[in-house]
Every structure is written in C-alpha cells, then in structure tokens.
C-alpha cells in the first residue's frame, strides 16, 4: 500500500511533498528490518506511526533523518535525496528530532542546550542565539527553568526542553520517536499538549507513539507497522473505525482496551 492509493484528501495542505519514500528496505545483517516501505508525507501533514515493539517504526523515522542507513529503494526528505548506505548532514539540519530518552546535554543548562547548535551550526551570535532560544522555551512554557540543569527538572519538562531545542533550529519537519514512553504517566499530558500546540502551527510532524487519543486528535493519517512493513494507512476515523488489516485490528483491540 502506498500514499497514492490510500485516498487521503489533502485539502488545506500545500501539497508539497516533504517526505517521499519508495520501495525502501533496510537490513541489519541478514535480518530485514524494513520491508519495501512506500510512504509520502506532504508539508504540513501530521502522521502518527504505531505498531508493536520491534515493528520497525523507530527505525523508519530514523531513516528519514539519516540516523540510520537503508540499503534499497529511495528516500527523499525536504527535497534532499538520501544516499543508500550514506549519512547526510544537510538533511539533519532541516529535520528536528525528539527522542524517547530526551537526550538533553546534562552538562549544559536548559538555555545552553538550546543555544549550542544555534551558535555552532546556524552561526548566530550569543545574543541572537539566546533570544531565539528564549522564544522557543517560552513557546513550550518552560522559560522559567532556563538556567537549570536537565537533572533538576522533571521528565516532562526535560522533554519540552528537547522539543524547544529542536524547534529553535526552525526545521521543516519534526520527528518524534516515542516522546512520551519514558515519562511518568502524570506528565505525559504536558508533552502531548505541547505537541498539539505545535501541530496547530502547521508544522509537518511524524510521530511514533502509542498515544491513540493524541493520534485521533491531531493526525491526518495513522500508519500501522508490523514486522518492518506498513500494513495500514488511513485517516483516524477509518483507521480506528474500520481497520482493514487483521493484525492492525488485533493491535488496536489490545491497545485500546
């Protein structure tokens, strides 16, 4: 199944393709972790990817920003065609990523976490970098923690800092790799709210998550993956209402009950 025949209405979207993956496969040694993946995501679209653990969802989004290499097919992200078996720094500048484990820099303050790449990569001067970092920290409503170290704030706050850090680079696409899975249940909502706010700004987002309420609320399409293959792609009402794939049905009945 691919994007072109899943009949999604793209009204209101720019129609510009942000991610275009065709016939892509990836092996770890002789084990095929991604199997003939076809998916296209338009600019401004929000896609949620779900599936059982080990299904290849994280690996798929890590291929989109060149953190993982693929061995066959083609991957084009933000107009950059990624090479098979290569790494591409240009695409990493255009794509922001938020990790399950936050991966904040523990030796830097919240503010410094956000300004580091602004200064080193975008070559902003200290004042510009700080002003921009503060702007994004206030957008995720955590500016008051700017001078604290990551270890001194809660997990939910850390993840919001990670989101601000990625957004401050002003990426064209944001990838979220199970952003709430490592959080205490009571702070999951604050991260989801931040992501919902972000969705409202028109950012292109691809999120690997099991938060089905969030998927229903913001996703344009939900993708189900299992054993390295995309088995179902549909807008939330169809996806949750009448999933076509048997394994997807089983997965949803387990996760929703």
């Amino acid at each position: 199944m691919n994007f072109w025949d899943c009949g999604v209405d793209l009204d209101g979207k720019s129609g510009k393709i942000c991610v275009d993956i065709r016939g892509m496969s990836k092996w770890f040694g002789s084990f095929r972790v991604l199997n003939n993946i076809d998916i296209a995501v338009s600019a401004g679209e929000k896609v949620v990817i779900c599936g059982p653990s080990g299904s290849g969802k994280s690996t798929l989004i890590r291929c989109m920003n060149s953190l993982e290499q693929f061995q066959s097919g083609s991957v084009t992200v933000c107009g950059v065609a990624l090479e098979q078996d290569g790494t591409n720094a240009a695409v990493q500048r255009r794509v922001g990523m938020v990790f399950q484990q936050f991966n904040l820099f523990p030796h830097l303050t919240v503010l410094e976490n956000c300004t580091l790449a602004l200064r080193l990569v975008l070559k902003l001067n200290a004042d510009e970098a700080e002003a921009r970092a503060r702007e994004y920290l206030s957008r995720v409503r955590i500016l008051e923690q700017a001078n604290k170290y990551p270890a001194d704030i809660s997990g939910g706050q850390q993840q919001r800092v990670a989101i601000a850090r990625a957004l401050a680079m002003e990426p064209e696409l944001m990838l979220f790799d199970e952003p709430t899975s490592a959080l205490d249940p009571e702070v999951v909502h604050e991260v989801l709210e931040t992501m919902t706010d972000l969705a409202a700004t028109g950012m292109t987002m691809i999120c690997v998550t099991h938060e089905m309420g969030f998927a229903r609320q913001i996703a344009d399409r939900v993708v189900f993956m299992d054993e390295g293959a995309i088995l179902e792609v549909a807008p939330p009402p169809e996806f949750f209402g009448s999933p076509q794939n048997e394994r997807c049905r089983v997965f949803l009945s387990r996760i929703l009950n």
Partner: peptide, 10 residues
C-alpha cells in the same frame, strides 16, 4: 548524546 548532536546538525 552523539545522536542528539547529530540531529541538531553538529
């Protein structure tokens, strides 16, 4: 930590 650096373009 390396990955976080990489995805920020470092």
């Amino acid at each position: 930590q390396w990955e976080a650096g990489r995805v920020l373009g470092l």
